[in-house]
Nucleic acid binder design. Structure first.
Lengths: 115, 115
DNA sequence: ACAATAGGGGAATAATTTATCCCTATGCAA
DNA sequence: TTGCATAGGGATAAATTATTCCCCTATTGT
């Protein structure tokens, strides 16, 4: 991330949650980590459309935002495992609800999005 | 919006909801419209940090995604009113939950975000 | 005459986010 | 000996999103 020229808007709760969830793959990362995919390479395989680089960066941001923790094993080749923090777990109901809404309206959404 | 070079990922419900909510001011627009701020100029006053242009564009996208409707009155100066569609209203519980999570964790979020 | 109004759109530019490519290190297998 | 797997970082290019600035409409009030 570079130095920001336009200040963030952090007026209300919606801005705040937006800030930590904004990022192309963040929600999915949280989701897959919760499902037990802990290692970066596993996550990469789960989200093949994402570049390795950006996954790594977004994981770092999630960690900075205290939603996940990073555990490094001193082995070669390197091994790293991410887990949700307790704080991160409190986001799960929100993500679940979002996913349900999307699933429930899948057909309609596909139509209007690709219109 | 220009022609997209990188295809959208629309694999699951989370991608779909992400697509319609992604946009710097969209959630807030939905929220304020629901609170009864129907006219573009009202919304502009509610969200002074956003440029007029981008609000107008995001409103158009919300309309395209069938979350809001646009009603034009044949008067001068022009008068336009937006309202949530029934479909748009089904998003309110999701937005509410997001806002609540953000509010509840406001202090912590402010810390980690501006860290 | 002419500014003010309310909504919107085009074009150019700035800001931000992602993608691409290449590099590090080490033990194991072919 | 070469290649692979693993996790991540730097540099740079590309794509996407947002901002700025200016124009148009048509009527009302000064």
């Amino acid at each position: 991330m570079h130095e920001r020229k336009i200040p963030l808007n952090l007026n209300c709760g919606l801005d705040l949650i937006g800030e930590v969830l904004y990022g192309k793959w963040k929600i999915r990362l949280l989701w897959f980590i919760n499902e037990g995919n802990k290692r970066p390479s596993e996550l990469q395989r789960k989200i093949p459309d994402a570049s390795r680089r950006v996954l790594s960066m977004q994981l770092k941001e999630l960690e900075k935002h205290e939603l996940i923790t990073r555990k490094v094993y001193a082995v070669v080749p390197p091994k790293v495992e991410y887990s949700l923090t307790d704080f991160g777990k409190t986001l799960l109901p929100v993500i679940t609800l979002m996913g349900e809404w999307g699933d429930k309206n899948e057909e309609r959404l596909r139509n209007v999005i690709t219109k």
